[in-house]
């Protein structure tokens, strides 16, 4: 391998043009400017299943949805105290995303761990959206620094502080890694495939456990250990 190459850095608006999105390649490092809102299961359920009216003008104000609960508190005078921000794993939100994109016009989804290429192709590509992954994933302090100010919070009473819709103004917030492109390719799957080649060799000299577990066999008549 040798000395590692530096990945390409890109600045991106949170209301990106189609051209700016088309420009993104897997593994690019992006920094964001503009308004970002957090939304995860609490917001999705309220907006989609309970059909509550979204308290923001989307996607005009922001086309960037962060899967995140920030480390934040509300001061007595109503101002906000925001420390670190770290994404939460996105795979759990797949079932709401298509409808959410219809409703919100989101073009950038930020989260932890990405989604499958199948989901990118079936949901993201038709909506011309991409997925950015946070880095580490523990870069909460760095991302916290990229927040110029907390603009607002919505639905904290209805869904709690962690699930609420926080609206933040980002200023060169990052780094984020481009984990899907407009064709629906998946960075993590690409890496998994590269790693899979060497796995057989690593497993040499090990042996499977004497007793299996369910999952290793799906035949419920088999005898397994718990």
């Amino acid at each position: 391998m040798g000395r590692p190459a530096k990945p390409r850095e890109i600045s991106l608006s949170t209301t990106p043009t189609p051209d700016a999105l088309a420009e993104l390649q897997l593994g690019d490092i992006a920094y964001l400017d503009g308004l970002i809102y957090t939304a995860r299961e609490g917001v999705y359920m309220r907006a989609i299943e309970q059909k509550a009216e979204i308290p923001l003008e989307l996607p005009k104000q922001s086309a960037t949805n962060f899967h995140c609960s920030p480390a934040a508190s509300i001061n007595e005078d109503g101002t906000f105290n925001m420390g670190a921000v770290t994404a939460t794993a996105s795979f759990r939100f797949a079932k709401w995303l298509s409808e959410w994109m219809d409703k919100s016009g989101a073009k950038i989804i930020i989260g932890k761990g990405g989604m499958t290429s199948e989901l990118y192709k079936s949901i993201f590509v038709p909506h011309c959206a991409v997925y950015l992954s946070t880095v580490g994933y523990g870069t909460g302090a760095l991302l916290g620094r990229g927040i110029k100010r907390v603009v607002d919070i919505h639905w904290e009473k209805e869904v709690g502080l962690a699930q609420a819709m926080w609206v933040i103004e980002a200023e060169r917030m990052g780094p984020f890694i481009v984990a899907s492109d407009l064709e629906g390719n998946c960075l993590f799957e690409r890496e998994n495939e590269k790693i899979a080649h060497g796995l057989d060799k690593i497993y040499e000299g090990t042996k499977p456990a004497v007793l299996k577990r369910f999952g290793e066999t799906d035949d419920r008549k088999d005898e397994v250990i718990g």
């Binding site: 593994g27 480390a71 523990g138 870069t139 916290g144």
Partner: peptide, 26 residues
Amino acid sequence: DLASFVLQAMLENYEVAKEDGRAMCG
């Protein structure tokens, strides 16, 4: 390349956490 970028970002993150007195991870 990417793994190395992530580690550098983490090292920077620890510095920022200390400087700003904010949690290193959200």
